[in-house]
Computed example of a mutant assay.
Amino acid sequence: MSPRVVPAGFVRAHTRVRQPSSVPEVSLHVADDVVALWEAMETEAGGAGDAPPFWAAAWPGGQALARYVLDTPDVVAGRAVLDLGAGSGLVAIAARLAGARRVLASDVDPFSRTAVRVNAELNGVTGISVTGDVLAREPRGVDVVLAGDVCYDREMTERVLPFLDRARAGGCEVLVGDPGRPYLPHDRLTAVAVREIPETEGPGLRRTTVWRLP
C-alpha cells in the first residue's frame, strides 16, 4: 500500500507563516488554533487518526536543536543527516542551512511529511527528502542523527532509544533536543547546550537542553 499523501494546499490554507522565536532564520507554517486545525484534518483531509498536529508548531527541543546546529555548523557541514521525528521540518531545514550534504526527514505522520516539503520550499531549501517511520531500520548512510522532542512519552521513548543506541554504535553523532521531559535518561547523556525557549503553548520559558549520546 502506498504511503498517504496530504495535499500541500491543505497545510498552507490552515496555517500562517511565522519565524520561531529562537530560530528567526527559518520561516514555518504554524497553526494559531490547533483545535480548529485538527478538526479540519478530520473533515477536509480525510481524517487525522489519533495524531495531533505536532507538525504545526515549533517545539522547544526542535528550536534548541536547530539553534545549536546553526550556531555550530561543523556538527553537520558536509555530512548526511537524519532528522528523526521531523514535525515541521525546522531541524532538517536548519541542518541544510548549516551545510549538511543531504537530510532525510523522518516522521510517521503524513501531514508532517507534507509540512516538511512545504516549509523547505518556503525557505528555498533543497536537499531534504522525507520518509515515514525508520525506527525498525538500521541507520545506514547517515553521519548525524538529530532528534528534537522525541521522548514525549514512555512508549515513544522506549522505541526511540534503541534506535539512537544503534546509530551511535554505528558511528553516528547523535544529538537530542529536549525541554526536561522525565522519560529521557539524562544520566546516559552529555549536555552540549542549554537555552531558554519560549513555551509553545502559553507564556513562560522552558529550559531546554541539547544532549549528545556519548
Rank of each mutant, 00 (worst) to 15 (best):
R181C: 05
R159K: 13
V108T: 15
R18K: 02
M41I: 10
D143L: 11
E173S: 13
G177R: 01
A105W: 02
A98P: 12
D153S: 12
T208G: 11
G141D: 11
A51T: 14
L28F: 00
A95T: 10
P162W: 03
R195L: 05
G78W: 02
P60H: 07
S112D: 08
A169W: 01
P110T: 00
G78S: 10
D107T: 01
G177I: 06
R159C: 06
T126I: 10
E138R: 09
A94P: 15
R117F: 00
W59G: 08
E158R: 10
D109G: 06
L205W: 15
R113G: 00
Y152E: 13
V130A: 06
P7I: 07
E121A: 15
A94L: 10
A86E: 04
V11K: 04
A40L: 14
A58Y: 08
G85M: 07
A45Q: 12
S106G: 01
V145S: 06
G85D: 10
L135G: 03
R102Q: 12
F111A: 01
A115D: 05
A115S: 14
D143I: 04
P20W: 02
N119M: 04
P182V: 00
G127E: 15
D153K: 14
P203I: 14
A13Y: 12
L135V: 09
P203A: 13
W38C: 09
H29F: 02
V192W: 08
S22L: 09
L70P: 10
E25V: 02
I128S: 09
D178W: 03
V81A: 05
R102S: 13
V134F: 08
V116N: 07
A56W: 07
D153V: 11
M1L: 10
T43N: 11
S88N: 09
F10Y: 13
V125H: 09
L205A: 11
R206Q: 15
P179T: 00
D32M: 01
V194K: 04
G180P: 07
G47T: 11
L146M: 10
V23Y: 03
D149R: 08
A80V: 06
P110M: 04
C172L: 04
S27T: 05
R4K: 11
G202F: 11
G148D: 13
R206K: 15
G89A: 04
G170Y: 04
P162H: 01
V26E: 00
G61Y: 13
